[in-house]
Amino acid sequence: MEALDEIILLERFESRINAGEKIEPKDWMPERYRKQLIRMISQHAHSEVVGMLPEGNWITRAPSLRRKISLLAKVQDEAGHGMYLYSAAETLDVDRRELIEQLLSGQAKYSHIFNYPTLNWADIGVIGWFVDGAAIVNQTMLAKCSYGPYSRANLRICKEENFHKRQGYEIVATMAAGTTEQREMVQDAVNRWWWPSLMMFGPSDNESPNSAELLRWKVKLHSNDELRQRFVDLTVPQSQAVNITLPDPELRYDKKTQHWNFGKINWEEFWNVVKGNGPCNRERLAARQKADDDGAWVREAAVAYTMKRRMNR
């Protein structure tokens, strides 16, 4: 009897999704859907928070007051994105603390891209251009996903990311038109970030274990490869406009398909970084762990103070 109910509920759930309706927190949903969403939303939230570190690395060295202010504002926006996303995840009956502990224990993942170091100021421009650019392609899709709270969080995030991307590209364009050293910095940053940025969309669909189910339930609407191609098609003309070379000798335009073909991605590198062996995995987690440890007494004090005030009322 219960199994039969479940089948009916699942049919109804899937037909709502097919009709383009949003699923809201109190609606029935299959356990797998809930689990997949928690995994995705929390990974996304963790990525925003860990993503504060590589860019935060340059706040104190930004070369002008205007750049310092806009970088700090950008990193602050990322903290804000982390907050909406943790809140979106909390609608699925899991709390922020639990998710943070999963991040710190290494059980939960975050985007592999933030395990690369920021080595010169141009990295700040290139991250805005590539990493935020890639995130926008992905999040524009997620803003249409079937889960209401996640869809709305992405809608808001996309607006801000667009601004970040423009800001990043403007840094790149300014430096690319600048001194010889500045051009070298940009080219160096582009060489280091291009391939990892392409990896951000995840493995090819035939090797992505979660893809089929996520597509069926409209958590995702496009495959990883489709999104990656869209990003490449958008970015190549932008690189030409600032006269910067993307580090791929196989990059060429296919008139028939109207897409840019690109070379082979080194998936071994990707999996290696995902497994924890990237250049900065240890540093990133150690920084999050330190902030969490150093902040423990502050959080305890805040709770104790609230309790005392409640008791005195």
Binding site: I59, K68, L72, Q76, A79, G80, Y86, K290, G295
Partner: peptide, 27 residues
């Protein structure tokens, strides 16, 4: 601004960055 990314809770990363932004704007 040195706190950004290292505060005790995310809300405080945001608040301290906000205050830093105000001060840098005034400066």
């Amino acid at each position: 601004s040195e706190w950004c990314g290292h505060a005790p809770i995310l809300e405080e990363d945001i608040a301290l960055a906000n205050i830093a932004l105000d001060l840098l704007g005034q400066a």
